[in-house]
Amino acid sequence: MNPPFGIPPELFTILLALGLLAGFVGLNGLVLVYLERKVAGHIQRRPGPFEVGPHGILQPLADALKLVGKQLITPRGADKWLFWTAPIISFAPVFVLFLPIPFGPVLTAMEMDLGLLLILAFAGINVLALCLAGWSSENKWSLLGAARAVAQSVAYEIPLLLAVLAIAFQFGSLNLSTIVSGQGAWPWQWNIMVQPVAFFIYFVCALAETNRAPFDLPEAESELTAGFHTEYSGMGFGIFFLAEYANMIVVCAVATALFLGGWNGPAAPGVWWFLVKVYLLLLVMMWFRWTYPRVRFDQLLNLSWKWLLPLALINLLVTLVLVKI
């Protein structure tokens, strides 16, 4: 493809990838809102949204328009600057997270050797946003939610890193494309067969890192109203939501690339296999939400520090032995 107007080809690729990603993230937000409400509805034996469009398919669009039309309210005592930068900081790293993810054999925004590390590093920025949002609102619920958010992400980061490291040691690479090409087409050639424990740890940690039920304590509505985003209405809330859904896609995409063979599939490997696997994982996440009750906060922290962390370390040790044999 020859870029027009004499733009350097590298820049053209970057801009093209950026445009596609922006479309994907926006569309994905709409799809996931619809999917989440439909899944919730059907699990509880009700149809979910049904009025706007056929089977309520236009509901997320109507929601988005409603959010844009709402007044931006800064609470009286809030720190104005921090209050409005927090949602922006929470969304800012999202595109970078998609940068090294191999969607298909050639469909990667940027091949890089440290892709995995880049994702893990930029994923940490979200915590800062939650912390700022909770603190700057000057609301007690928000502050408690923020304290929980920080403690939780901090606790689950370590087992997550260790689970990912097991794969990195096995392949001797942090490049996601290399890891994907190292796996075969059939499910028994995927890493989940070699590293089931790592996948289990990764998935539990991913749920906790994205604040999904049963670990949605930072925004536990029955105890903290809405946690860190209590004071956000309209678009402030909307952007936090969009960032959360984008982060869910990222953790599922990384899980797919690391453990489920990425774009490899029995027939015609390509981006469709990748998307099918990612959305299946997302459905599992939604299914979890309506299956398990929310854990208590000390249970949450201790599950990570007492069980997942030692388990991840032992798993890493076993991997080290297996790589050397």
Binding site: E10, L11, I14, L15, A17, L18, L21, A22, V25, L67, V68, G69, K70, L72, W84, P87, I88, I89, S90, F91, A92, P93, V94, F95, V96, F98, L99, A109, M110, L118, G234, M235, G236, G238, I239, L242, A243
Partner: peptide, 21 residues
């Protein structure tokens, strides 16, 4: 460059709905 561009456009993407609002 790609990391910087992506990060800044992430922030702009988030700021645009606020301006619309």
């Amino acid at each position: 460059m790609s990391i910087i561009i992506f990060f800044i456009s992430g922030a702009l993407f988030a700021a645009a709905p606020f301006i619309a609002s």
